[in-house]
């Protein structure tokens, strides 16, 4: 039962409020101001522009396409990651030789930065020197290299695969933690009742994992939606914005084209979308998820 000690409470959060306020909210305010201003190519504000930057977005067909791509990318990565991570967490929770090793190996993509992961994959998917092509050719499954990053379809498949692989460690470890908080008596009771693996999974494990699933899904959506390095390093949006997501498009608009105003408007729009998503999501799941939406 939390106590009412307003002064102590405020004092305890004060350092965090100051630090986060200065480091995060100051730039957010700057971005918000830019989104309502005329901004030159050095990101200097030159007067109020009203909603012009936002209106420009609505007539920007590339923006609408990239928005759709971003939703697709987020749903695909978070969805598949979750589906894959559940059995992975179940397996990691089993008692077997080499469990420690399996956990250690699974952590590796997490230990490396997104940028390093992406750079390594760019090399693996190289048009001429891809080791995957090399292997497939040696097995006589193909006789011409597949240019993985050269066309929309295979490029998206590659980008999503990498997105999934870097998201699995965090997701499966969180789910594993969730599993370990399921009292084992419950399992054993189910076994005695003759419930099989699937029955106990559906009726006991999954419902008990629900809270942790909700929190990890929410966090994954936010992180994946905003994940810059993977699409950027792999394709830079080529061909013709077809593999861009919103953050890479924002980066191009702002830094490659000097269009800081519309870019800031997009950033604000992403924020509104994510906020709306978290509110709706927490409403639907009716879960007072501890991530802040109470």
């Amino acid at each position: 039962m939390p106590r009412s000690e307003p002064l102590v409470g405020l004092l305890f959060i004060l350092p965090t409020v100051v630090l986060v306020g200065v480091i995060v909210f100051y730039p957010i305010v700057e971005t918000a101001l830019m989104s309502f201003s005329n901004v030159n190519s050095l990101a200097q504000r030159e007067g109020f522009a009203g909603l012009a930057n936002y209106q420009a977005l609505l007539s920007d067909t590339v923006f609408l396409r990239v928005l759709a791509q971003t939703v697709f990318w987020t749903v695909a990565v978070v969805g598949i990651t979750t589906v894959v991570s559940i059995p992975v967490a179940l397996a990691l929770n089993l008692n077997f030789h080499g469990r420690r090793l399996a956990r250690a190996l699974l952590i590796v993509p997490w230990a490396a930065s997104l940028m390093i992961n992406a750079i390594i994959w760019r090399w693996i998917l190289d048009g001429q020197h891809s080791i995957i092509n090399g292997t497939l050719m040696r097995l006589h499954l193909i006789d011409q290299p597949i240019i993985w990053l050269g066309s929309e379809g295979t490029a998206w498949a590659a980008i999503i695969l990498v997105g999934i692989l870097v998201s699995i460690p965090f997701t499966s470890f969180s789910l594993l933690a969730g599993l370990q908080s399921v009292p084992s008596e419950l399992y054993e009771a189910a076994m005695v009742d003759g419930a099989g693996f699937w029955a106990s999974f559906w009726h006991i494990t999954l419902p008990l994992m629900r809270p942790v699933l909700i929190v990890t899904t929410l966090l994954n959506v936010i992180y994946v939606f905003n994940s810059f390095p993977i699409p950027w390093v792999l394709t830079q949006g080529s061909p013709a914005y077809r593999t861009d997501i919103l953050v890479t498009y924002i980066y191009k608009r702002a830094f490659a084209e000097g269009q800081f105003g519309p870019a800031a408007a997009m950033a604000m729009l992403i924020f509104v979308l994510l906020l709306a998503f978290s509110l709706t999501f927490s409403h639907i799941t009716k879960e007072r998820a501890k991530v802040g939406i109470k």
Binding site: G127, I147, S151
Partner: peptide, 21 residues
């Protein structure tokens, strides 16, 4: 040329020429 030029950057093509491909 190589098929799907959108899958190649300048650095990659330079390396390909240098390697004799």
């Amino acid at each position: 040329s190589q098929p799907e030029p959108s899958g190649f950057t300048r650095e990659q093509v330079i390396e390909n020429f240098k390697a004799g491909q």
